[in-house]
Design a binder for these strands. Structure first.
Lengths: 215, 215, 215, 215
DNA sequence: TATGAATGAGCATTCATTCAT
DNA sequence: CATGAATGAATGCTCATTCAT
């Protein structure tokens, strides 16, 4: 449930994580937070290093000092938000006694998290959608969902082996399931009055019907 | 099944469509096509007007002459591709005798269209994902799907009234349904070896189970 | 007597030289001239595109419009100055009836050219000394003198085969000869009151003694 | 045989040499050595204070603490390398019984020193070529060679008064002689397979012919 | 003494747009 | 109608230097 291990400046291979001083970590955290806010408020395309620095009330150079480049900063944003989402959702899912409830917990926990972390999830999705490599190709594509897909497939397998789920293609179901959650978020972001919890319940019902074995 | 009528330079409100000469229309079409190809080949972020012009074998200025700005050009790309998709999918759907088959036709026709028009759909989705207004907000958001949602809701209402579908929330189902199709496209673009037709079949099964009335 | 064929933006392989409009050529020439003056007046390290543009009284973007990059601009400066030097020196040298006079003509013609073209030669040498590739290695090194060396070696061979010159190593003599001329220029640039013509005569005497066969 | 006394932060005029503690001198020496290695390994243009500090394994600030600025550091590098060259060449030259042998010793000793100290001489020449003052003028120009020229002129005067040398202009000969040695180094650096000793021998022959009195 | 955090000017380059011809 | 020349703002990034701790 973590994004792929990627470039990320200093760290290579063995994840050699230069021990950072407390205040350096604080600055990094501050800058990451500023990036999240800038992206979610001004949009990905408008979030230049200059804008992020201004938002944080610091000089442009500070960002370059603490991060190898814009790429690393955005990557850290992704990692951080992603990790926090996973930490919120995973335990709730694994705590369930059966696969049907696990799926439902997945959806409702995700929805609950969205409500409390709109800004950062917005930044996350902006980066996912907006970040391109030098070739113009999306830097975070479907590949970044691979972990999510695999976790979902495990749940589906569990249900199928147990006989609770019908014999659908697990990959297609995983892709569809994740897309449905993302769409729930996107729709709610666009229409903030939309009833997120109700959407989550409906979505859980939808997939409950979609996966369950006949009879 | 068309995107909302939006900014777009010349046209406002009443869709005042400056009568354009034949050759002017030809030039516009040529430029739109060049934009589609450039975006899908080089990526949205790399598709500057200069690159599009080069691709079309014309001068940069021509684009500015025929379009109010880059914004309008991209809008025209969206309209054109969008319209063509709708023209392909709509008839196949409406030809179906029952709502279950209508949904299935929706999915399989869409998948069939994707296979033959990967390039332009890629451009379309790039523009959807990449285009921002001056505030940095996505220019084409969920709102652009409103027509799609309404058409889907009609099908769902049909099924519910007929008793074939259960009593789910039609808006949630529509959002989820459309997102699932978009995800099918995105996954296939990323993994071209992925079996698109099989995915479509599985997706149709998925929604068939998801919507149908019990019993 | 031309510098190596190098990158240089557009041209590749067959020296495909995009036919340029008259006014484009004029602009390029103006920018090249501005670069020469800026470099010789403000020094290589201070000659940013911004400074060159300011010197030319144009916007920074113009340079980017007409040249692929700073590198290409500097390369064109080198080519242009280099070519003009060669065109001045070569005929005077080849017109000589014997190798001794050829060497003397080489030196005195070069000195004469220096007097009239101090600025551009200064720019040329600045670029040679200052331009580095991304690795920090000199872009124009000794290798750029290869043509010069070969031409000089031809003269030396001529003298040796004729029996006028002694049997020295032609490459060492060429390297030394060229360095001596460059040093004459450098010394004169630093001490403008220095008598360039007298230096040239002395240098010619020096090499006459250095090369001639005994007896 | 030392470079001119120039700006250089602390020292001015009377060479007021702040008494430095032992450990301060050690630090300075360490930093100077790191600078030499960084410049010769990564190139002058890539040798920022940050890179030099990293190479030395110390913090950037240390350099600023011990040296008035980058300028002073480079000046100290020049002084140190220069001094060591002089200490190697001078005794070998003065030990010669006659001016012809003195010249030969000058060249061959210099060549010998080059072979053993390629790195530092490379740094030296990089600084000579690359360092500019705020006006963009070369900081170390021909003026820095004045001591060398004077020493050479002494040898030439010796030879002329003795009747062994012809009546050439001593300054021109000195400038040419020194340039020839520098060129030998530059050529060998570029073509490391080049036979340095043979080059030195040829160069000695060249100047022997160039200076000696007829008859 | 030494550190590392912070600064802000400067860099080359890209781009949508304007406009005279 | 079409061109290509020009603009100037914006971008990510580097760097010597400063300074509180």
């Amino acid at each position: 449930m973590r994004p792929e291990n990627r470039q990320g400046g200093q760290e290579s291979g063995t994840d050699k994580q230069k021990k950072r001083s407390f205040i350096e970590e604080a600055r990094r955290a501050q800058i990451i937070q500023a990036a999240i806010e800038t992206i979610s408020e001004e949009g990905y395309a408008n979030s230049s290093l200059a804008r992020i620095a201004k938002h944080a009330g610091i000089s442009k150079g500070v960002i370059s000092y603490h991060f190898a480049g814009k790429e690393e900063l955005l990557y850290e944003v992704v990692v951080q938000v992603y990790t926090k989402v996973a930490e919120a959702v995973a335990p709730a899912v694994t705590a369930q006694p059966d696969p049907v409830r696990a799926l439902r917990a997945y959806i409702t926990t995700a929805a609950g998290y969205m409500r409390g972390h709109r800004t950062e999830l917005l930044a996350l999705s902006s980066i996912f959608l907006g970040s391109r490599d030098t070739e113009g190709e999306p830097r975070y594509g479907v590949a970044g969902n691979e972990d999510l897909y695999r976790n979902l497939e495990e749940i589906f397998r569990w249900g199928q082996e147990e006989g609770a789920f019908r014999g659908f293609d697990r990959r297609v179901m995983a892709v569809t399931f994740q897309a449905s959650i993302d769409a729930m978020f996107g729709y709610w972001v666009f229409y903030p009055e939309h009833d997120l919890e109700e959407h989550a319940r409906e979505l859980a019902d939808l997939f409950e019907h979609a996966v369950r074995a006949p009879g």
